[in-house]
Nucleic acid binder design. Structure first.
Lengths: 169, 169
DNA sequence: AAATGACATGTCAAGACGTACATGTCTCAG
DNA sequence: CTGAGACATGTACGTCTTGACATGTCATTT
Protein backbone atom coordinates (compact mmCIF):
# COMPACT_ATOMS: atom_id res chain seq x y z
CA UNK A 1 0.00 0.00 0.00
CA UNK A 2 2.99 2.34 0.23
CA UNK A 3 2.69 3.49 -3.37
CA UNK A 4 -0.71 4.96 -2.63
CA UNK A 5 0.71 7.08 0.20
CA UNK A 6 3.80 8.03 -1.74
CA UNK A 7 1.58 9.50 -4.47
CA UNK A 8 -0.72 11.13 -1.93
CA UNK A 9 2.28 12.59 -0.12
CA UNK A 10 3.85 14.05 -3.24
CA UNK A 11 0.55 15.62 -4.24
CA UNK A 12 0.24 17.05 -0.72
CA UNK A 13 3.51 18.87 -1.29
CA UNK A 14 2.28 20.34 -4.54
CA UNK A 15 -0.37 19.54 -7.20
CA UNK A 16 1.19 17.72 -10.14
CA UNK A 17 0.53 15.75 -13.28
CA UNK A 18 1.29 12.04 -13.50
CA UNK A 19 4.28 12.86 -15.61
CA UNK A 20 5.70 15.19 -12.99
CA UNK A 21 5.13 12.60 -10.29
CA UNK A 22 7.05 10.06 -12.35
CA UNK A 23 10.00 12.42 -12.46
CA UNK A 24 9.81 13.14 -8.74
CA UNK A 25 9.82 9.41 -8.04
CA UNK A 26 12.99 9.19 -10.09
CA UNK A 27 14.63 12.16 -8.42
CA UNK A 28 13.65 12.91 -4.83
CA UNK A 29 12.14 9.54 -4.02
CA UNK A 30 14.67 7.27 -5.69
CA UNK A 31 16.31 6.62 -2.33
CA UNK A 32 13.17 5.59 -0.51
CA UNK A 33 10.44 4.43 -2.86
CA UNK A 34 10.76 3.65 -6.52
CA UNK A 35 7.88 3.49 -9.04
CA UNK A 36 7.34 3.57 -12.80
CA UNK A 37 4.76 5.52 -14.70
CA UNK A 38 2.94 2.27 -15.48
CA UNK A 39 2.15 2.04 -11.79
CA UNK A 40 1.57 5.73 -11.16
CA UNK A 41 -1.17 6.41 -13.73
CA UNK A 42 -3.41 3.53 -12.60
CA UNK A 43 -2.84 4.54 -8.96
CA UNK A 44 -3.94 8.10 -9.71
CA UNK A 45 -7.11 6.74 -11.29
CA UNK A 46 -7.80 4.62 -8.19
CA UNK A 47 -7.13 7.55 -5.86
CA UNK A 48 -9.50 9.71 -7.88
CA UNK A 49 -12.18 7.02 -7.74
CA UNK A 50 -11.72 6.97 -3.96
CA UNK A 51 -12.04 10.78 -3.87
CA UNK A 52 -8.64 11.13 -2.20
CA UNK A 53 -7.35 13.22 -5.11
CA UNK A 54 -9.08 15.28 -7.80
CA UNK A 55 -8.24 16.78 -11.17
CA UNK A 56 -7.71 20.49 -10.71
CA UNK A 57 -6.63 21.43 -14.19
CA UNK A 58 -6.09 20.30 -17.78
CA UNK A 59 -2.92 21.33 -19.52
CA UNK A 60 -1.15 20.94 -22.80
CA UNK A 61 -0.74 17.48 -24.34
CA UNK A 62 -3.80 16.10 -22.54
CA UNK A 63 -2.11 16.46 -19.20
CA UNK A 64 -4.17 16.40 -16.03
CA UNK A 65 -3.05 18.13 -12.85
CA UNK A 66 -4.09 16.35 -9.68
CA UNK A 67 -4.35 17.69 -6.13
CA UNK A 68 -5.21 15.98 -2.83
CA UNK A 69 -8.68 16.49 -1.42
CA UNK A 70 -9.39 17.10 2.26
CA UNK A 71 -10.19 13.39 2.58
CA UNK A 72 -6.85 12.57 0.96
CA UNK A 73 -4.97 14.73 3.42
CA UNK A 74 -6.77 13.10 6.33
CA UNK A 75 -6.01 9.63 4.98
CA UNK A 76 -2.33 10.50 4.55
CA UNK A 77 -2.11 11.82 8.08
CA UNK A 78 -3.85 8.71 9.42
CA UNK A 79 -1.33 6.48 7.67
CA UNK A 80 1.70 8.44 8.80
CA UNK A 81 0.63 8.73 12.42
CA UNK A 82 -1.63 5.81 13.22
CA UNK A 83 -0.58 2.89 11.05
CA UNK A 84 2.28 0.84 12.44
CA UNK A 85 5.23 1.15 10.02
CA UNK A 86 6.43 -1.85 8.09
CA UNK A 87 10.17 -1.68 8.74
CA UNK A 88 11.15 -4.29 6.18
CA UNK A 89 13.37 -3.08 3.38
CA UNK A 90 14.16 -4.05 -0.20
CA UNK A 91 17.51 -2.76 -1.23
CA UNK A 92 19.59 -4.63 -3.73
CA UNK A 93 22.57 -2.42 -2.86
CA UNK A 94 22.22 -3.35 0.79
CA UNK A 95 22.10 -7.03 -0.10
CA UNK A 96 25.22 -6.70 -2.23
CA UNK A 97 27.07 -4.94 0.56
CA UNK A 98 26.01 -7.66 2.96
CA UNK A 99 27.35 -10.41 0.71
CA UNK A 100 30.56 -8.71 -0.41
CA UNK A 101 32.77 -10.42 2.20
CA UNK A 102 32.18 -13.66 0.28
CA UNK A 103 34.23 -12.34 -2.63
CA UNK A 104 37.96 -12.69 -2.86
CA UNK A 105 39.99 -9.50 -2.25
CA UNK A 106 40.31 -8.34 -5.87
CA UNK A 107 36.62 -8.65 -6.64
CA UNK A 108 35.74 -7.11 -3.31
CA UNK A 109 37.95 -4.13 -4.00
CA UNK A 110 36.35 -3.65 -7.41
CA UNK A 111 32.79 -3.67 -6.11
CA UNK A 112 33.63 -1.29 -3.27
CA UNK A 113 35.15 1.10 -5.77
CA UNK A 114 32.08 0.92 -7.98
CA UNK A 115 29.92 1.72 -4.97
CA UNK A 116 32.16 4.56 -3.91
CA UNK A 117 31.86 6.19 -7.30
CA UNK A 118 28.10 6.00 -7.06
CA UNK A 119 27.95 7.39 -3.52
CA UNK A 120 30.07 10.34 -4.52
CA UNK A 121 27.68 11.17 -7.37
CA UNK A 122 24.81 10.88 -4.93
CA UNK A 123 26.49 13.25 -2.48
CA UNK A 124 27.16 15.77 -5.23
CA UNK A 125 23.50 15.65 -6.26
CA UNK A 126 22.32 16.10 -2.67
CA UNK A 127 24.71 19.01 -2.23
CA UNK A 128 23.11 20.73 -5.20
CA UNK A 129 19.63 20.12 -3.84
CA UNK A 130 20.72 21.66 -0.57
CA UNK A 131 22.31 24.65 -2.29
CA UNK A 132 19.27 25.26 -4.50
CA UNK A 133 16.90 25.15 -1.57
CA UNK A 134 16.84 28.82 -0.55
CA UNK A 135 14.85 29.84 -3.60
CA UNK A 136 12.28 27.06 -3.31
CA UNK A 137 8.59 28.01 -2.96
CA UNK A 138 8.07 26.40 0.46
CA UNK A 139 11.67 26.39 1.48
CA UNK A 140 12.87 25.06 4.77
CA UNK A 141 10.47 22.26 5.69
CA UNK A 142 12.38 19.51 3.88
CA UNK A 143 15.89 20.74 4.65
CA UNK A 144 16.44 18.27 7.53
CA UNK A 145 15.53 15.37 5.24
CA UNK A 146 18.13 16.43 2.72
CA UNK A 147 20.63 16.83 5.53
CA UNK A 148 19.89 13.26 6.68
CA UNK A 149 20.51 11.98 3.18
CA UNK A 150 23.86 13.72 3.12
CA UNK A 151 24.88 12.35 6.50
CA UNK A 152 23.89 8.79 5.56
CA UNK A 153 25.80 8.91 2.30
CA UNK A 154 28.79 10.45 4.03
CA UNK A 155 28.94 7.57 6.50
CA UNK A 156 28.72 5.11 3.64
CA UNK A 157 31.42 6.95 1.68
CA UNK A 158 33.81 6.95 4.62
CA UNK A 159 33.15 3.29 5.35
CA UNK A 160 33.81 2.36 1.71
CA UNK A 161 37.06 4.34 1.73
CA UNK A 162 38.17 2.49 4.86
CA UNK A 163 37.40 -0.90 3.34
CA UNK A 164 39.27 -0.03 0.16
CA UNK A 165 42.27 1.25 2.08
CA UNK A 166 42.27 -1.73 4.46
CA UNK A 167 42.32 -4.37 1.74
CA UNK A 168 44.86 -2.47 -0.38
CA UNK A 169 47.47 -3.38 2.25
CA UNK B 1 16.09 -11.67 -9.26
CA UNK B 2 17.59 -10.47 -5.97
CA UNK B 3 15.88 -13.15 -3.94
CA UNK B 4 17.74 -15.82 -5.84
CA UNK B 5 21.10 -14.28 -4.97
CA UNK B 6 20.12 -13.55 -1.40
CA UNK B 7 19.42 -17.27 -0.92
CA UNK B 8 22.56 -18.28 -2.77
CA UNK B 9 24.59 -15.85 -0.70
CA UNK B 10 23.27 -17.07 2.62
CA UNK B 11 23.98 -20.66 1.62
CA UNK B 12 27.48 -19.64 0.58
CA UNK B 13 28.06 -18.44 4.12
CA UNK B 14 26.91 -21.74 5.56
CA UNK B 15 24.73 -24.70 4.47
CA UNK B 16 21.24 -24.36 5.92
CA UNK B 17 17.68 -25.63 5.81
CA UNK B 18 14.87 -23.53 4.41
CA UNK B 19 13.67 -22.92 7.93
CA UNK B 20 17.03 -21.56 9.00
CA UNK B 21 17.17 -19.31 5.94
CA UNK B 22 13.76 -17.93 6.83
CA UNK B 23 15.07 -16.98 10.25
CA UNK B 24 18.20 -15.43 8.80
CA UNK B 25 16.08 -13.34 6.43
CA UNK B 26 14.19 -12.10 9.48
CA UNK B 27 17.30 -11.36 11.49
CA UNK B 28 20.44 -10.47 9.54
CA UNK B 29 18.76 -9.58 6.27
CA UNK B 30 15.76 -7.66 7.57
CA UNK B 31 17.56 -4.40 6.85
CA UNK B 32 18.41 -5.16 3.23
CA UNK B 33 16.16 -7.81 1.73
CA UNK B 34 13.02 -9.23 3.23
CA UNK B 35 11.39 -12.55 2.29
CA UNK B 36 8.85 -15.02 3.67
CA UNK B 37 9.11 -18.78 3.82
CA UNK B 38 6.46 -18.99 1.13
CA UNK B 39 8.97 -17.46 -1.25
CA UNK B 40 12.05 -19.20 0.09
CA UNK B 41 10.95 -22.82 -0.31
CA UNK B 42 9.94 -22.47 -3.97
CA UNK B 43 13.16 -20.58 -4.67
CA UNK B 44 15.23 -23.39 -3.14
CA UNK B 45 13.43 -25.84 -5.39
CA UNK B 46 14.19 -23.70 -8.45
CA UNK B 47 17.84 -23.30 -7.44
CA UNK B 48 18.13 -27.06 -6.99
CA UNK B 49 16.57 -27.64 -10.41
CA UNK B 50 19.17 -25.26 -11.86
CA UNK B 51 21.93 -27.18 -10.03
CA UNK B 52 23.07 -24.04 -8.21
CA UNK B 53 22.37 -25.64 -4.85
CA UNK B 54 22.06 -29.25 -3.70
CA UNK B 55 20.66 -31.16 -0.75
CA UNK B 56 23.56 -32.24 1.44
CA UNK B 57 21.66 -33.78 4.30
CA UNK B 58 18.29 -34.79 5.68
CA UNK B 59 17.53 -33.97 9.28
CA UNK B 60 14.77 -34.35 11.80
CA UNK B 61 11.22 -33.32 10.88
CA UNK B 62 11.78 -33.85 7.17
CA UNK B 63 14.24 -31.00 7.03
CA UNK B 64 16.62 -30.73 4.12
CA UNK B 65 19.97 -29.02 4.41
CA UNK B 66 21.06 -27.21 1.25
CA UNK B 67 24.53 -26.09 0.17
CA UNK B 68 25.73 -24.14 -2.85
CA UNK B 69 27.37 -26.07 -5.67
CA UNK B 70 30.47 -24.87 -7.51
CA UNK B 71 28.16 -23.57 -10.26
CA UNK B 72 26.15 -21.72 -7.62
CA UNK B 73 29.24 -20.04 -6.24
CA UNK B 74 30.30 -19.00 -9.73
CA UNK B 75 26.85 -17.60 -10.48
CA UNK B 76 26.83 -15.64 -7.22
CA UNK B 77 30.24 -14.18 -7.96
CA UNK B 78 29.14 -13.27 -11.48
CA UNK B 79 26.11 -11.40 -10.15
CA UNK B 80 28.03 -9.54 -7.46
CA UNK B 81 30.88 -8.48 -9.72
CA UNK B 82 29.59 -8.31 -13.27
CA UNK B 83 25.92 -7.41 -13.12
CA UNK B 84 25.21 -3.69 -12.87
CA UNK B 85 23.48 -3.06 -9.53
CA UNK B 86 19.90 -1.88 -9.44
CA UNK B 87 20.15 1.06 -7.01
CA UNK B 88 16.42 1.57 -6.58
CA UNK B 89 15.14 1.13 -3.07
CA UNK B 90 11.87 0.25 -1.38
CA UNK B 91 11.78 1.41 2.17
CA UNK B 92 8.52 2.33 3.78
CA UNK B 93 10.43 3.87 6.69
CA UNK B 94 12.37 6.06 4.27
CA UNK B 95 9.15 7.17 2.59
CA UNK B 96 7.62 8.04 5.96
CA UNK B 97 10.67 10.05 6.96
CA UNK B 98 10.52 11.86 3.63
CA UNK B 99 6.87 12.83 4.13
CA UNK B 100 7.02 13.69 7.83
CA UNK B 101 7.46 17.46 7.25
CA UNK B 102 3.87 17.47 5.96
CA UNK B 103 2.58 16.72 9.47
CA UNK B 104 1.83 19.39 12.02
CA UNK B 105 4.35 19.68 14.89
CA UNK B 106 2.62 17.40 17.40
CA UNK B 107 2.16 14.52 14.98
CA UNK B 108 5.67 15.01 13.67
CA UNK B 109 7.11 14.84 17.15
CA UNK B 110 5.17 11.64 17.85
CA UNK B 111 6.38 9.85 14.73
CA UNK B 112 9.98 10.89 15.31
CA UNK B 113 9.78 9.50 18.82
CA UNK B 114 8.35 6.23 17.55
CA UNK B 115 11.22 5.98 15.08
CA UNK B 116 13.78 6.85 17.72
CA UNK B 117 12.56 4.03 19.96
CA UNK B 118 12.91 1.62 17.06
CA UNK B 119 16.40 2.78 16.11
CA UNK B 120 17.58 2.38 19.67
CA UNK B 121 16.37 -1.22 19.72
CA UNK B 122 18.13 -1.79 16.43
CA UNK B 123 21.37 -0.36 17.78
CA UNK B 124 21.16 -2.55 20.87
CA UNK B 125 20.64 -5.63 18.69
CA UNK B 126 23.59 -4.72 16.46
CA UNK B 127 25.73 -4.13 19.52
CA UNK B 128 25.00 -7.66 20.68
CA UNK B 129 25.81 -9.09 17.28
CA UNK B 130 29.12 -7.25 17.38
CA UNK B 131 29.89 -8.44 20.91
CA UNK B 132 29.01 -12.06 20.11
CA UNK B 133 31.21 -12.08 17.05
CA UNK B 134 34.53 -13.24 18.53
CA UNK B 135 33.29 -16.76 19.11
CA UNK B 136 31.72 -17.16 15.66
CA UNK B 137 32.97 -20.00 13.42
CA UNK B 138 34.24 -17.80 10.61
CA UNK B 139 34.69 -14.70 12.66
CA UNK B 140 35.92 -11.45 11.27
CA UNK B 141 34.79 -11.36 7.64
CA UNK B 142 31.42 -9.73 8.32
CA UNK B 143 32.54 -7.40 11.11
CA UNK B 144 32.78 -4.32 8.83
CA UNK B 145 29.20 -4.88 7.66
CA UNK B 146 27.96 -4.89 11.23
CA UNK B 147 30.02 -1.79 11.92
CA UNK B 148 28.38 -0.05 8.94
CA UNK B 149 24.94 -0.93 10.28
CA UNK B 150 25.86 0.60 13.62
CA UNK B 151 27.17 3.78 12.03
CA UNK B 152 24.09 4.21 9.83
CA UNK B 153 21.74 3.73 12.74
CA UNK B 154 23.80 6.07 14.90
CA UNK B 155 23.49 8.84 12.31
CA UNK B 156 19.76 8.25 12.14
CA UNK B 157 19.45 8.25 15.93
CA UNK B 158 21.32 11.52 16.29
CA UNK B 159 19.31 13.14 13.51
CA UNK B 160 16.03 12.06 15.13
CA UNK B 161 17.16 13.44 18.49
CA UNK B 162 17.97 16.77 16.84
CA UNK B 163 14.59 16.96 15.16
CA UNK B 164 12.81 16.15 18.40
CA UNK B 165 14.81 18.72 20.35
CA UNK B 166 14.38 21.37 17.65
CA UNK B 167 10.60 21.15 17.49
CA UNK B 168 10.25 20.91 21.28
CA UNK B 169 11.25 24.57 21.43
C1' DA C 1 -1.06 -40.81 27.00
C1' DA C 2 -2.41 -36.56 25.41
C1' DA C 3 -1.86 -31.76 24.79
C1' DT C 4 1.05 -27.90 23.67
C1' DG C 5 4.20 -25.41 21.14
C1' DA C 6 8.30 -24.95 18.48
C1' DC C 7 10.11 -27.00 14.36
C1' DA C 8 9.67 -27.67 9.34
C1' DT C 9 7.88 -27.67 4.58
C1' DG C 10 4.85 -26.74 1.28
C1' DT C 11 0.80 -24.54 -1.96
C1' DC C 12 -2.50 -21.14 -3.72
C1' DA C 13 -4.87 -16.87 -4.90
C1' DA C 14 -4.64 -12.05 -4.99
C1' DG C 15 -2.16 -8.03 -5.36
C1' DA C 16 2.15 -5.31 -6.46
C1' DC C 17 5.58 -4.38 -9.84
C1' DG C 18 8.46 -4.19 -14.21
C1' DT C 19 9.04 -4.49 -19.23
C1' DA C 20 7.34 -3.70 -23.36
C1' DC C 21 3.87 -2.04 -26.26
C1' DA C 22 0.82 1.63 -27.91
C1' DT C 23 -0.85 6.30 -28.89
C1' DG C 24 -0.91 11.02 -29.36
C1' DT C 25 0.95 16.26 -28.67
C1' DC C 26 3.92 20.14 -28.90
C1' DT C 27 8.37 22.62 -29.97
C1' DC C 28 12.27 23.53 -32.37
C1' DA C 29 15.94 22.82 -35.59
C1' DG C 30 16.97 22.34 -40.27
C1' DC D 1 7.19 22.16 -43.46
C1' DT D 2 9.00 17.97 -41.85
C1' DG D 3 11.45 15.15 -38.72
C1' DA D 4 13.39 14.47 -34.13
C1' DG D 5 12.84 14.45 -29.51
C1' DA D 6 10.82 15.69 -25.21
C1' DC D 7 6.26 15.70 -23.24
C1' DA D 8 2.26 13.00 -21.66
C1' DT D 9 -0.88 9.11 -20.77
C1' DG D 10 -2.26 4.76 -20.94
C1' DT D 11 -2.54 -0.87 -21.24
C1' DA D 12 -1.09 -5.92 -21.20
C1' DC D 13 1.45 -9.74 -19.76
C1' DG D 14 4.50 -11.98 -16.91
C1' DT D 15 6.96 -12.26 -12.59
C1' DC D 16 7.58 -11.21 -7.68
C1' DT D 17 5.63 -11.00 -3.17
C1' DT D 18 2.29 -11.53 0.52
C1' DG D 19 -1.17 -13.71 3.48
C1' DA D 20 -3.74 -17.55 4.28
C1' DC D 21 -4.28 -22.25 4.19
C1' DA D 22 -2.55 -26.91 4.85
C1' DT D 23 0.13 -30.74 6.73
C1' DG D 24 3.12 -33.18 9.44
C1' DT D 25 7.14 -33.98 13.25
C1' DC D 26 9.42 -33.90 17.59
C1' DA D 27 10.20 -32.73 22.64
C1' DT D 28 8.33 -31.40 26.89
C1' DT D 29 4.94 -30.99 30.18
C1' DT D 30 1.03 -32.68 32.59
Amino acid sequence: MSLRYAVLGLLARRPSTGYELTQTFDRSLRSSWHARHSQIYPELAKLEAAALVEVVGLGARRSKTYAVTAAGRAELRRWLVEVEPDRSQRSESGLRLFLTPLLDPDDRQATYERDLAHVELELAALGEVQAGMQNAPEPEAFAPQVELGIRMNTVLRDWLREQIKASAT
